[in-house]
Design a protein around this nucleic acid. Structure first.
Lengths: 156, 156
DNA sequence: CAAGATTGATCGCTCAATCTTA
DNA sequence: TAAGATTGAGCGATCAATCTTG
């Protein structure tokens, strides 16, 4: 039991937690399945490419990507290998710090991102957004941003 | 773009989606890390054992577990292998259908569940529930349950 | 022939160790 | 000595094929 003074409240929180992780698992599974069906890039590739696409100069250092997509450094090295082999990004050595590399998204990468979004965006709309009003979305952003801020502060 | 007639609303929905998946990734990562730190069972083991623990006779058919924890049949076979080798559950053949097996949680399994919950529950409280009122939890349950129902109906 | 479970092949991720540069 | 990135070993997941039973 989390809180012995307010067990009913804890029950509600626990129910919310369970609904949260179940919904997440099912939606992600479905969207990834939809992407595979449509022969588009998988969700993890999308996550990396969208970070690059939205970065100031369409590029990021490898360790920055790893942090943003919640992946180990070594895992990211191999993911970047696959993305580079597929032509969706290029490694670019950093002249100011020769230990490190940038990953830069290519035109093919941008194209892959667009095509995947046709499927991904439809999934987000259909499985997630369709259940939400604009006001509810604002509330969710506030709620989840608070959680994210707490976790990124503590030991991010 | 999801909906060309209400782009602002789509922006809010997209922001909510991003906050949702980011919060999920960070919270799960943190809780799994906390469990490993405390030398308790990992989250996926917990998911399986809690399903067994809450099942009518403390047992479920293997394919039922696979469905509930969103895992492939073959993946589950091996996960059950590890749980059985660790003494947390036992396979029990079904007398009514000799193709299949039940997984039954053991006393050691229940103990492992309790010990893991001391860490897991604290994480849920600290990283998730602390941000929620009872009313908000109710709303989240309603929201996410709707999404889950839609996905389980369509092709679950 | 279909369904439940397992096995083999393979893929992707993590940890620990290593290489290069700051 | 530390930090960025890579490599090797090993684990855990999936897909496809197989075995057993309905």
């Amino acid at each position: 039991m989390i809180n012995h003074e307010k067990p009913q409240e804890d029950d509600k929180h626990l129910a919310a937690w369970r609904a949260f992780i179940t919904a997440h698992a099912l939606i992600i599974e479905r969207i990834d399945h939809d992407l595979a069906q449509a022969k588009k890039i998988p969700l993890h590739w999308y996550d990396v490419l969208i970070e690059l696409y939205e970065a100031p100069e369409k590029r990021l250092r490898l360790h920055e990507i790893a942090q943003r997509v919640v992946l180990s450094r070594s895992g990211l090295t191999r993911l970047v290998d696959r993305l580079e082999q597929s032509g969706y990004l290029q490694r670019q050595s950093d002249p100011d710090d020769r230990r490190g590399y940038y990953a830069v998204i290519t035109a093919e990468g941008v194209q892959a991102l667009r095509e995947a979004w046709q499927v991904y965006g439809k999934g987000v709309q259909q499985y997630f957004a369709a259940h939400l009003s604009a006001e509810q979305s604002d509330q969710l952003v506030a709620l989840f941003s608070g959680m994210v801020a707490q976790l990124r502060d503590q030991a991010g």
